[in-house]
């Protein structure tokens, strides 16, 4: 029985990984063939690094992801504090609207924002591009921050903020010294989640970017629409390597902190 389980797991892993490995192997292929490996070359990587469109859209993606996730983390953390202290009915309304971008299909969120931006661009001086892209990213990022931070408030003692003020802290200091450390794990995971969603997003960016400001996923999409080029394979390989490194580092950091907490007696 156990053996059968192992074989099954291996089969599923093959299904998940074989396509990616084929992609990686053919990034070193001399010709453009997708089925015959004719010889080893690094040409596609060289071409990739000289491809201005790819480099500039990569830079653009990173700028937008950093800005969007930082702004959403601030906005979302403040929002969570406020929402937690709201009365029941307004709280329920706000949470339901906040969940909309998470529940709705991405295409609906993208299209709805596009309608809004079209409306604004006709009446004000708003053009599709960096600004609309950034607004769209913040909009779908903030709900994830709130989703991560809110549960931390539920775990927190509601009176410690008042207690800190009774003991002479200013509200700002009380926030910094008492609330922030309690909710910090949620804030960090919310930030990381919104950063990765921003890096990876295609659908919403596709509807809100216009033609001037492109992100890497949009560039990849237009590359797959045109002629087949092993440059995409090379790009996939680099992204795959980056992902593996990041996940290994993340795993190492997590096990290290877990060990530290165990041996150091925790809090």
């Amino acid at each position: 029985m156990k053996k059968l389980g192992k074989i099954y797991l291996i089969l599923v892993l093959l299904f998940l990984y074989v396509p990616i490995f084929v992609l990686i192997v053919f990034s070193f292929n001399e010709t453009k063939s997708r089925s015959v490996f004719s010889g080893f070359t690094l040409d596609w990587y060289k071409r990739l690094f000289h491809n201005r469109i790819i480099i500039s859209s990569l830079v653009n993606t990173i700028i937008i992801a950093v800005l969007a996730s930082v702004i959403s983390t601030v906005l979302g953390t403040l929002a969570s504090i406020g929402i937690y202290h709201m009365k029941k009915v307004p709280k329920a309304i706000v949470m339901n609207i906040t969940n909309m971008p998470i529940i709705n299909p991405e295409i609906v969120t993208g299209v709805s924002l596009m309608l809004l931006f079209v409306f604004f661009s006709a009446r004000m001086n708003l053009e599709f591009g960096f600004t609309t892209l950034l607004i769209a990213h913040i909009t779908f990022d903030v709900p994830y921050v709130i989703l991560n931070v809110m549960p931390k408030f539920a775990q927190m003692n509601p009176h410690i903020f008042e207690a800190a003020q009774d003991l002479g802290c200013s509200p700002v200091k009380a926030f910094r010294k008492v609330i922030l450390p309690e909710i910090m794990p949620g804030v960090i995971s919310g930030f990381l989640m919104s950063f990765t969603y921003s890096l990876d997003d295609f659908v919403i960016s596709y509807f809100t970017s216009g033609s001037t400001s492109q992100t890497l996923p949009i560039t990849i999409y237009s590359m797959t629409r045109r002629k087949v080029s092993p440059e995409i394979n090379a790009l996939s390989t680099l992204i795959f390597i980056a992902v593996v490194i990041i996940l290994i580092v993340k795993n190492a950091v997590e096990t290290r902190t877990a060990r530290k907490n165990n041996s150091g007696g925790g809090e």
């Binding site: 906005l75 929002a79 929402i83 202290h85 609207i97 309608l115 903020f161 509200p171």
Partner: peptide, 29 residues
Amino acid sequence: MKLKYFSAPYLVWMAVFIAVPLLMIVYFA
């Protein structure tokens, strides 16, 4: 200072960029 006012900036954002766009879909339809 009341803590619930912390959410004011987000509430504006939510109204303009989540609620209004969805209402626009209904309106356009």
